[in-house]
């Protein structure tokens, strides 16, 4: 009996991602959740500029390619005009926390019933390794070649904590996909996010700490180690807002 295979919500198009890049894992988790909730036929995904801009080739649901930073606004347009659709965005850290910060904050403020899958790999991947808003202090990138400097380039942004302060945010959790145990937790978080969307509870966002072996200059294995040792202390995993918990107590 097959116990593990490609989810239906993914096409047969091979991923273009670099070897060991965890985008591929997160794509699969989202697709598995779409299968399990049986919503592929009523889902629209919005993928903006970034490594995941080609997501329209990989997901079997209807897809829209959005301008850099604007996926939450595009998703708002889709959802507001078709409230019965399931709508998700799949965004990188440069997209969500730099150029798209206003759009991100305002879907939280408005409590848009959409789900944001936010890939935080502390770097701009597609354009070749530049500093992102989530780049850690001291982290070397092509635009922070001497290591990110607090005075010169400011501080990394903790998105889940920020989004949790917005009343319209129903669910905000930070997960990782660095090991099997965390991949399973990440899937549970993604499933909960989509479920809350269906229950019209407001905005759900899952921030996934992710690797970028190529631009970090590390092997896939070492990249996972680097993530655990450097990113997790600054970006603690956990649930930062869960409206269903607040409803209980």
């Amino acid at each position: 009996m097959i116990v593990f295979e490609k989810p239906h919500a993914l096409t047969d198009v091979p991923f273009h991602y670099c070897p060991g890049c965890t985008h591929g894992i997160v794509h699969r988790l989202v697709a598995e959740v779409l299968d399990e909730l049986g919503v592929e036929g009523t889902t629209v995904g919005v993928a903006p500029v970034g490594c995941s801009v080609f997501a329209y080739n990989y997901f079997n649901c209807d897809m829209i390619e959005a301008p850099h930073g604007r996926a939450p606004a595009v998703a708002t347009g889709v959802k507001r005009s078709n409230p019965d659709l399931t709508v998700f965005t799949y965004q990188g850290d440069g997209d969500l926390a730099a150029i798209g910060t206003a759009e991100t904050v305002h879907v939280g403020a408005r409590g848009e019933n959409i789900t944001i899958i936010f890939i935080n790999n502390a770097i701009y991947g597609m354009t070749g390794g530049q500093m992102a808003p989530t780049t850690l202090l001291g982290q070397v990138t092509t635009t922070s070649p001497y290591g990110r400097d607090k005075q010169l380039q400011g501080n990394p942004i903790r998105v889940c904590e920020m989004m949790a302060t917005l009343d319209g945010t129903a669910y905000a959790e930070r997960v990782a996909v660095d090991c099997v145990q965390n991949v399973r937790k990440a899937k549970a978080a993604i499933k909960k996010a989509f479920t809350l969307q269906q229950e019209k509870k407001g905005l759900s966002i899952v921030e996934v700490l992710s690797t970028c072996p190529t631009n970090w200059g590390l092997s896939p294995e070492k990249a996972l180690d680097w993530l655990r040792e450097n990113m997790m202390p600054h970006y603690p995993l956990g649930v930062y807002k869960d409206i269903t918990k607040e409803e209980q107590n």
């Binding site: 919005v46 301008p67 604007r70 606004a73 595009v74 347009g77 889709v78 507001r80 078709n82 206003a102």
Partner: peptide
């Protein structure tokens, strides 16, 4: 449905989303 966006940048992208669904 009428929605005031946070900027004209967001507004035109909401249009892009809604119009993409054929409305």
């Amino acid at each position: 449905m009428c929605l005031q966006a946070e900027s004209e940048v967001a507004a035109i992208n909401m249009i892009y989303g809604a119009a993409s669904t054929g409305k």
